[in-house]
Structures are given as structure tokens and as C-alpha cells.
Deep mutational scan, measured.
Amino acid sequence: MTDQQAEARSYLSEEMIAEFKAAFDMFDADGGGDISVKELGTVMRMLGQTPTKEELDAIIEEVDEDGSGTIDFEEFLVMMVRQ
């Protein structure tokens, strides 16, 4: 866990972390443990947004600390705390 990830967790109660985990699992449609650009786009479109591929890439790049091209749960928490 990076310093950013530990800091993000410090702002959240266990209840909030559990709620974010449920949301993360909804995004992680294939159950792979991370959110891909495609999965992020699908959920955002379900919520009425129309992000471009470039916008989706930028969202993932902003929090993808390990350079995997996807968002894992710890990175997702950082993203949610920043919102």
C-alpha cells in the first residue's frame, strides 16, 4: 500500500470502505479485481455520462499508481477520497 493509499484509508470509516467496495465490485464486471477502461466506460454510460476514450484513459491514469492500466481497489479508494 502506497502512502497515498494509506492516507485515503485514514479518511474513511470501515462502513464507508465497505460501501466503496460494493461500488467497486459493480464497476469490476468481470470480477478480475480491477477496473478496466471498458468497465469504467460501461458504468459511466449507465449513469448517463458519455465519456470519450481519452477521458476514460485520463481518469485511470490519474490514479493508476502501479502503471497497470487499470484501477485496483486501493487506487479506487484514492480516487473516491479525491472527489
Rank of each mutant, 00 (worst) to 15 (best):
D66M: 05
K21C: 01
G67M: 15
D66I: 13
T50G: 10
M16G: 05
A23T: 11
G33A: 02
V43L: 10
F20C: 03
T70H: 12
R45T: 09
I59M: 14
I35W: 00
A58K: 15
I59H: 11
M44I: 05
S68A: 05
E61M: 07
E61Y: 10
T42Q: 13
E55C: 03
S10G: 10
F73W: 09
V37H: 10
L56A: 03
T42N: 10
V63S: 09
L40V: 11
R45V: 14
G48E: 05
S68C: 15
D28Q: 06
D57W: 02
G67L: 11
E7I: 14
E55F: 04
L77N: 01
D64H: 12
P51R: 13
T50N: 09
T52E: 05
M26D: 09
D66N: 09
G32V: 07
F73E: 01
E54N: 05
V37C: 07
D34C: 13
Y11L: 12
G32C: 11
D30I: 13
A18N: 15
E19L: 02
E15I: 09
I59D: 01
M79P: 05
A22K: 15
Q49D: 11
D64F: 04
S36E: 12
M80Q: 10
A22D: 09
D66Q: 14
R45E: 10
Q5D: 13
T2M: 11
V37E: 02
M80V: 08
D34Y: 03
A8G: 08
I71A: 02
F73A: 01
L40R: 00
I60H: 14
L40D: 01
M80I: 07
E7T: 11
S10Q: 03
V37D: 03
M46D: 04
Q49T: 09
I71M: 11
D28S: 07
D72A: 10
F73R: 03
E54K: 05
Y11F: 07
I60V: 12
G41W: 07
V43A: 05
V37A: 06
E74D: 04
D72M: 10
S13Y: 01
E14I: 02
T42A: 11
G33D: 02
E7Q: 09
I17C: 07
S36Q: 09
D57K: 02
A23V: 11
L12C: 03
E15C: 02
F24K: 01
M46W: 06
D30C: 05
G32K: 03
A8R: 08
K53C: 02
M44C: 04
A18K: 15
F76W: 01
G31A: 13
V78I: 13
R9A: 11
S68L: 11
T2K: 06
Q5V: 13
G48W: 01
E39M: 08
R82A: 06
F73H: 01
S10M: 06
E14S: 07
G41M: 12
M44K: 01
G33H: 01
R82G: 14
G69I: 02
E55M: 04
G33N: 02
A6H: 09
T50F: 11
L47Q: 02
D3V: 11
V78H: 15
T50A: 01
L77A: 07
Q5H: 11
A22H: 15
D25P: 01
M79A: 14
Y11V: 13
E7G: 13
A6T: 09
M1I: 15
I35R: 01
E14Q: 07
G32L: 10
F76S: 00
E61W: 06
F27Y: 09
D3M: 12
E39A: 09
E15A: 07
D30T: 11
V63D: 06
A29D: 14
R82E: 06
M1W: 09
G48I: 01
D30M: 10
Q5M: 13
F73V: 01
M1S: 05
E74G: 12
D34K: 15
L77E: 05
Q4D: 04
R9S: 10
T50K: 12
E74V: 02
E39S: 12
Q49G: 11
E65L: 09
F20Y: 15
F76G: 01
T42R: 06
G69F: 02
L40K: 00
I35Q: 00
D28G: 08
T42Y: 07
M1R: 10
S10I: 08
T42W: 04
E14W: 02
E54G: 02
E19N: 07
P51T: 09
S68H: 05
